[in-house]
């Protein structure tokens, strides 16, 4: 959930709305948000399943280092969602890791 009123950062700024599509559903995001933030704000926390055991993974470091939050964006696999800003009409799918960096 977004913070409406912060004692130091102040009232939430009104930002332009951006629509992204997550597994067929439209999710409202705000301009400048990374994909990971938009998804978490919509209550989605499991971003991908591991290749061998199918265990869920989500945001761990939020600064592009750990690669735990990777998803498939506009058909490209292994995209770090925590450092990828949302774009209108972006198609986001739960990450399927591929060694070649391509979606199967």
């Amino acid at each position: 959930m977004k913070i409406e009123n912060h004692p130091i950062l102040g009232k939430k700024e009104e930002k332009k709305k951006v629509m992204i599509i997550f597994e067929g559903k439209t999710i409202e995001a705000e301009e400048g948000d990374p994909v990971a933030v938009a998804l978490m704000n919509a209550g989605i926390r499991d971003f991908r399943l591991t290749r061998k055991k199918g265990e869920p993974r989500g945001v761990y470091c939020a600064i592009g280092r750990c690669t735990d939050c990777m998803m498939t964006i506009n058909g490209r696999a292994n995209v770090r969602t925590c450092i990828t800003p949302v774009e209108e009409g972006m198609i986001v799918e739960r990450g399927k890791l591929s060694r070649e960096g391509k979606t199967k």
Binding site: M1, K2, I3, H6, L9, K12, G32, D33, P34, V37, M40, N41, G58, V59, Y60, C61, A62, I63, C82
Partner: peptide, 15 residues
């Protein structure tokens, strides 16, 4: 998640 990750989410993106 890392404590720094939580800090990024709330202080940078208001989440």
């Amino acid at each position: 998640m890392g404590a720094g990750a939580a800090q990024t989410l709330m202080n940078l993106y208001g989440l």
